[in-house]
């Protein structure tokens, strides 16, 4: 499993304004061998991304202030090429299209089944390595 071998664990950033989602997802990903950071604000996420090398981002769309779309747009400007998984409580096909155009690797609707999420995360990180 990615992140569980002797190599350095892959580092993932969770960006979601719901504290309990950040907390629970962090625990699940850590249980599966990843190192996890999290933040509830889009602008803070950009700061973390500038200073830390992540293998993957898990990004919520619907956040107050600097939204998930704003984060994607900023990353697009930065030519950031790490896989980004967008997950949202409500996503229309038009929103999915926008996210994909802005560089999202995958678009998932909440609640995301954990096995599906873990497999996606593993595949995306493997592909980008």
């Amino acid at each position: 499993m990615t992140g569980t071998a002797s190599e350095q664990p892959k580092r993932i950033l969770i960006i979601d304004d719901e504290e309990m989602i950040r907390e629970s997802l962090s625990m699940i990903l850590e249980l599966n061998g990843y190192r996890v950071d999290s933040t509830g604000e889009g602008s803070a996420a950009i700061e973390k991304i500038r200073t830390t090398a992540y293998s993957l981002l898990l990004l919520d769309l619907n956040m107050p202030g600097f939204s998930g779309i704003d984060v994607l747009r900023e990353l697009n400007r930065m030519r950031y090429c790490v896989p980004i998984v967008v997950f949202t409580g409500f996503g229309s096909p038009a929103t999915e299209q926008t996210c994909t155009q802005l560089g999202a690797s995958a678009f998932l609707g909440k609640p995301v089944p954990i096995p599906e999420l873990l497999e996606l995360v593993r595949n995306l990180i493997d592909r980008s390595d």
Binding site: E18, M20, I21, S24, L25, M27, I28, L31, N62, G89, F90, G109, K110, P111, V112, P113, I114
Partner: peptide
């Protein structure tokens, strides 16, 4: 509506898994 329901469901589902 979707946001208000799906976010708590996401939390419940994560803790069930844990």
């Amino acid at each position: 509506t979707a946001h208000e329901i799906n976010n708590p469901l996401e939390i419940i589902k994560n803790y069930v898994y844990l």
